[in-house]
Write a protein that binds this DNA or RNA. Structure first.
Lengths: 203, 203
DNA sequence: ACCTGAACACCGTTCAAGT
DNA sequence: ACCTGAACACCGTTCAAGT
């Protein structure tokens, strides 16, 4: 921290330095009012310098968002890597990993779905998001193949899962899923309810 | 429209005029970059005039958000007013009304859950949101009383329902629930899945 | 009582000019 | 090749001054 004192980026990788600095701001400043000039300031360069490495502000944000999706997918995938578990357990582990990522990185998570990083649906961002969605689809296919989950259109079930975890994250970040409002451990309760909608009735 | 030509607010209700103008901007400008100066401009007053009626920008936004929650609750409630229906049908109708409100008013919906309108959880806003949540809770209690829904903690089920509809709205607004990505009518599919998690197995 | 105009401290973005 | 400083057109907010 405080790289500015060492004047480190006179030559080289300002681009990476800007990304790192911005990531830190995203992690630390809960109050999400991201400004390019402040990133430049913290990186120890003039406010015009970033424009040599990014065409505009949205471009830097988009870069951060993409990295966010990569990290989200990696963490969610890691949560289900022990393949021996049941689809139910794998589902729960993946869903909790997703939600925890969102709650641990509220500003980043908001950014990932914010229009400020570019049209999420139409740009590369959409591709990243869809790739993250792939984890869910694999999980659902596994559950259906083993007979644990109902035989339904996987894409519809995936829409349900993604909407649920996304909703949980956003409402949690906004402080609307606190126990006093909506009962103890609303996150687990919500995921349990969804899971029961996915599962096939006991034979 | 174009009220400015008639110089209508020289005397009276500039406060209301600002709210109306801002609401129109919210409805029309898909690209959500709300500025107080533009509201003043469209209302035909100087950029300093709003400060005689609202302490700051967040205050106007908060007012708009509160009205949004009122409208959302009213529309959701209206969708289930024919009391004779089954809990399943009432639930589906209410959920679809909620989701359609969000999709019809994307900027307003975003604002309602955005930190720009003040801390959603801690201010009056939170109260409005909780009041809107009341519709869901009544519905769940009805379904449990009639035996249609599983006997579970209503607050947990409510968390599931709210997270689901909220997630559906946000992902839809962001263009991530389009048929080519996630199958035909992902909204109904997602709500069906949730509903099956709520319902008691057939006796 | 209600509104305006100038002013201040910020933005994002551009561009000539510096090394 | 990479960065800076001044500049432009915007913000939100304040405040003396106008009617």
């Amino acid at each position: 921290m405080n790289e500015a004192l060492e004047r480190p980026y006179h030559h080289g990788n300002l681009r990476q330095a800007l990304i790192d600095t911005a990531s830190e701001m995203l992690r630390d400043d809960k109050g999400w009012q991201f400004t390019l000039r402040e990133v430049a300031r913290r990186a120890g360069v003039s406010h015009a310098a970033p424009y040599k490495h990014f065409p505009d502000k949205a471009s830097l944000l988009s870069e951060l968002a993409q990295r966010g999706f990569e990290q989200l997918e990696a963490e969610t995938r890691a949560a289900i890597s022990p393949r021996q578990r049941s689809a139910r357990k794998a589902f729960m582990a993946a869903a909790l990993a997703y939600v925890e990522f969102g709650i641990r990185n509220p500003s980043l998570y908001r950014l990932m779905f914010s229009a400020e990083a570019g049209d999420v649906a139409t740009t590369h961002l959409g591709a990243r998001a869809m790739s993250a969605l792939g984890v869910v689809i694999e999980l659902l296919q596994r559950g259906q193949a083993s007979g644990e989950f109902k035989q339904r259109a996987v894409r519809g079930q995936a829409a349900a899962c993604w909407s649920m975890v996304h909703g949980i994250v956003v409402l949690s970040i906004e402080g609307m899923l606190h126990p006093e409002k909506v009962g103890a451990d609303p996150i687990r309760a919500a995921l349990e309810t969804l899971l029961e909608g996915l599962e096939a009735p006991a034979p």
